[in-house]
Design a protein around this nucleic acid. Structure first.
Lengths: 410, 410
DNA sequence: TACACCTCTGAATCTTCCA
DNA sequence: CTGGAAGATTCAGAGGTGT
């Protein structure tokens, strides 16, 4: 077994599986080449079962054979408490699921996990693909599973992981666990059990974590999978290890691992990465989405009914109205409490300096002693409804109101 | 065709499909009985294609035949620009996907939509299942699709939205500048195209929508599907209509529909619901789902800044301001998006009949053709900030704005 | 018709700037 | 020097365009 401990092997996993020890892995994570309809390898060994889906689609059928034989070869390597996780995109997930159903049995289906992310859009005439699917099957009914509690959307747990890992290097105590060995989130409350839809940011184009491998997966994703299905000291196998993300996750979590890939580029990349793992914290996950929201959401509600686009990451502009005048957008700011109207206008004007816009709108929310009456061509100051009503209320009696009304309609 | 216009038919869809007119529907929405592994009907007509997944799983195979024959029967009813949407849970989605792939062809696969909802559950030894899958296929390459745009991510910076981009001499992507080095505006973007992962609460918060049918789907979900894939006047078919949610969505959106269900309970339920759609349902069409869901909750937010006391359980009064004038409270109502100003005033006045108040305030949110100028001693109508800004935007050019500004300060 | 190349795009980082 | 705010950059899909 030591022969394969923490090694990366350059080989087709179909062949190496015969050499690897039986019933010795706790988790197999499989991120196969996606079926893109083009560059499929189509080796079929004699005597292999034929996974037929439709004879109309020979390519898909070849893909099924390719994957089927490999998944079948991998299964005997799993312990009886072990699990397999297969990563798919939408083009062939049903094929892989069907193969898994066949090999592991419907009764060992554990979950269909949706990895959801945001990415660049395009002009596609359908909802933008922004998820991939992971199927998890266990070998038997008695499988290992470490429930993770806490939000999946706010990513609190993963954040904890990353932060405590940083402490680790300084020799401090690491993961807080309760009596069941379950990781405790901040505040000690268990929270909600993990959902099967995971919001994890797509590995950003600019991320340092990127090593130049096209289908590289975020470390956070693999971290979660390894954590869910194995304990420290367990064995993890990745037969299509690619850039080695699974191996890095396993190593950082104290699991033993074996990586396999046909490509020598992938293998050397993985080895290099394992020698010097780059763990970048995702700002988004660390701070949460809320930290980016500086357009005052409550303030924008007073503009309910307008077709606005809220603007974040900008201290001056709260929202914009597009193409309403001159084809350029209108930039809007709502006066904050404890902010003078002048400051509010200044902030918007400063932020707008290098921007294209047709004009600026500031919504005044605070009663000001000094009325604003500076002439500016490209700026309008509008009183908020609350402010208008407040000023009306200062005319306390009905008679004053009556007077006001008659003036208004005069 | 009129024979089936806006009808609900009690029949097995396999049989009725022979009678329905060919190439006349724009959308088929199919929410079949889920495969639970038990109570499957296993009628198989001679000459039907056999959808084989694995001979090890005869029940699954029967389910496949059941669904395959019905989907096959439904396909000829679709126009060449039409689409089919099939709703699945995780137990058999790969079977349905495989059938669809067979009948409609891989090249007509449009999307795998994940409907994600939150569900309370406990002590599962797996991630909590909290999604279902919808597959969408079109009949041909030229299919109808109405893109829906949403907001930008919090991490997207303003420049992305406001500026156009170009390539420099090295082919790098840079922000575009004109010959004078001035930034070029993007001229208004539409927002982010809809993702294929939809967060929609399991059942609409409005309790009235519940009809008591076990697998009832949220109206918002169907509303979105119908909007995406059809135009007003188009035809929608639901061969397993159940409680009739699809039909209600179609009706409210001005589409023609045909519903089919084997169960007489389902059929009468659907008919009843169609004859008397609850009020909350009809608002959908007028307002769109966002405002529909939030209208009441957000009504008062446009008055942020005022010391309001919200009034619950009163259809006319939204909030009151205490003791500001004459010692009696001021009663406030915000005009709803689906309400005329007159109606709004009427509602407030009616609710105020037996109340002590100093005066009434109605906040007008909708641009109305007929200006309200009735003299009333105890009532003020105030325009919402959004309305004020909107009216300003109608003065499109800067010169007009300048004129407006100078008038204002005169 | 087939295919290579170009364009457009939003997210989330990296990088620079500024107080 | 430091930290936060704002600007700049890169990625990979699909559609469009031109050869």
């Amino acid at each position: 077994m030591n022969e394969f401990k923490n090694k990366v092997i350059e080989e087709d996993c179909l062949r190496i599986c015969d050499c690897l020890p039986k019933e010795s892995y706790d988790l197999v994570y499989l991120d196969p080449p996606f079926f893109s309809g083009k560059e499929q390898q189509s080796k079929t060994r004699d005597g292999m079962r034929h996974y037929s889906f439709s004879d109309r689609w020979p390519r898909l059928s070849e893909y099924a054979d390719f994957m089927g034989s490999r998944i079948e070869a991998v299964r005997p390597l799993l312990k009886s408490t072990g699990s397999i996780v297969v990563h798919c995109d939408s083009s062939a997930n049903f094929v892989l699921r069907s193969i898994l159903e066949d090999i592991f049995g419907a009764e060992n289906f554990r979950s269909e996990i949706v990895w959801r992310y945001k990415r660049w859009s395009n002009s596609q005439r359908s909802p933008i693909p922004s998820h991939q699917t992971l199927f998890s099957y266990s070998v038997t009914e008695s499988y290992k599973y470490n429930q993770i509690y806490g939000g999946y959307s706010a990513t609190t747990n993963v954040d904890q992981i990353l932060q405590s890992r940083a402490r680790d290097s300084r020799g401090k105590s690491v993961y807080a666990r309760d009596s069941n060995g379950v990781i405790v989130g901040s505040g000690g409350k268990k929270g909600v059990p993990l959902s099967d839809v995971w919001d994890i940011p797509f590995l950003n184009p600019k991320a340092k974590e990127r090593v130049g491998y096209p289908t590289q997966k975020p470390l956070v994703l693999l971290d979660r999978i390894v954590r869910l299905l194995t304990d420290p000291g367990d064995w993890v196998l990745d037969p299509f290890c690619g850039s080695g993300t699974t191996l890095v996750a396993a190593k950082l979590l104290g699991r033993n691992f074996t990586g396999v890939d046909q490509s020598s580029v992938a293998v050397s990349l993985s080895r290099e990465r394992l020698g010097n793992p780059v763990v970048t914290e995702s700002n988004l996950m660390k701070m949460g989405e809320e930290s980016y929201l500086n357009a005052d959401r409550d303030a924008l509600k007073i503009l309910a009914g307008l077709p606005l686009v809220p603007v974040q990451r900008n201290k001056g502009i709260d929202a914009l109205l597009k193409g309403e005048a001159d084809g350029d957008p209108v930039l809007i700011r709502v006066q904050r409490p404890f902010e003078t109207l002048g400051d509010s206008i200044g902030a918007l004007r400063k932020a707008s300096l290098k921007k294209q816009f047709s004009f600026l709108v500031v919504v005044a929310t605070e009663a000001s002693l000094v009325p604003y009456d500076q002439e500016e061509n490209d700026l309008i100051v509008v009183d908020s409804t609350a402010k208008v009503i407040e000023s009306l209320l200062r005319r306390r009696t009905r008679s004053e109101l009556r007077l006001f009304e008659s003036q208004k309609h005069a």
